[in-house]
């Protein structure tokens, strides 16, 4: 008992410390961001953007997300706890829009403005959405793929999952662009590795072994892309690999030439714009319905460009 109590004392002290850290500005708005993930470098970059905005605008921001992007109910628990905290605004990236509707309604009733980010929320409650156009981003990947393989041959896609908006949009964006614009290119396989590097590696190897004449693979998120590149290295293949997002590993692979290039979103911008939009809303300013945070194609040659380097993360 004693130990447990001592520990709890330590926890609450820690809590006060953490909460007190950023609370120095005059407005001191409390903004809760509930994201789709947490550990992944992409989400950490979003968090970095949000923290940057928090520091510049003098507001307090908390950032939470479930351990995996399948844990819809855990995200609901996080949203419910955030609501109980009674924050000034909420930023939310829904894993499943429908499941979140009752809680979002609760936020609306309590007069708490909601800003959607990343994949957004299928609902009219959020005041705006700070996001990447994933369909267009994946279509750009398709264009680059076609260019690199010379406009004909077989390609494949290794994506993270079949249920999330980004997963669906990126696969659709890529596959549809190939179908519509490149009649000589065939997408022979679309497989899902849960965004797990190792699993994606295995998937890649099986695709390569099944299709020796494959020309290229598109890895639809960071984990998938690294997995694809690893699979290519392990089998000593020389296919074209186009990735998605950045991170130290992927950047290294592009530098070394294992990966030809990748699409990057602007995660730092997503985090920044979400917090900025929340502050605007709290100050009563008008917001556009969608804030496009942008995307770019980058490769070894363009990686150092200031415009690109600013949105890449480690």
């Amino acid at each position: 008992m004693l130990t447990r109590r001592t520990l709890l004392g330590a926890i609450s002290a820690l809590a006060l410390l953490t909460a007190g850290g950023a609370a120095s500005a005059q407005e001191n708005y409390d903004i809760a961001l509930i994201s789709k993930g947490f550990q992944h470098q992409f989400w950490q970059a979003v968090k970095a953007g949000a923290d940057k905005a928090a520091a510049e605008l003098g507001v307090t921001v908390t950032f939470e997300g479930p351990e995996s992007e399948t844990q819809v109910d855990r995200q609901m628990d996080m949203l419910a706890a955030a609501l109980s905290r009674n924050p000034d605004a909420i930023g939310f990236a829904a894993l499943d829009s429908q499941a979140a509707t009752p809680l979002l309604q609760q936020a609306k009733d309590a007069g708490i403005p909601v800003i959607a980010f990343d994949s957004g929320v299928d609902s009219d409650i959020p005041l705006t959405t700070a996001t990447t156009d994933n369909v267009a981003a994946a279509a750009l990947a398709a264009d680059k793929m076609a260019e690199l393989i010379g406009g004909e041959g077989k390609v494949a896609v290794v994506a993270h999952d079949q249920t999330s908006r980004t997963g669906i949009d990126r696969v659709d964006g890529f596959v549809n662009r190939i179908k519509e614009n490149y009649p000589n290119i065939e997408v022979v396989s679309v497989q899902y590795g849960g965004g797990d590097q190792l699993q994606s590696t295995e998937i890649t190897k099986s695709i390569l072994l099944a299709n020796p004449d494959l020309k290229g693979i598109f890895g639809a998120n960071e984990g998938s892309a690294i997995g694809v590149a690893n699979g290519k290295t392990e089998l000593g293949s020389n296919i074209v690999v186009i990735g998605f997002d950045s991170g130290a590993a992927q950047k290294g692979m592009i530098t070394s030439g294992v990966m030809n290039g990748a699409i990057t979103q602007n995660p730092v911008g997503i985090g920044y714009e979400t917090v900025a939009a929340a502050v605007k809303a709290l100050k009563g300013e008008k917001l556009e319905p969608v804030i496009d945070t942008g995307f770019y194609y980058y490769d070894a040659a363009t990686m150092a460009d200031p415009e690109i380097a600013a949105v890449l993360y480690d």
């Binding site: 926890i11 809590a15 006060l16 953490t18 950032f63 939470e64 997300g65 628990d77 996080m78 419910a80």
Partner: peptide, 25 residues
């Protein structure tokens, strides 16, 4: 534990650490 730490705005990394400690305790 999860809810309380969230209400107190404890960083998520630390929430996990605390939960682990409680299980062992």
């Amino acid at each position: 534990l999860a809810n309380g730490l969230r209400i107190l705005s404890v960083a998520q990394e630390w929430q996990t650490v605390v939960t682990g400690c409680i299980i062992i305790l």
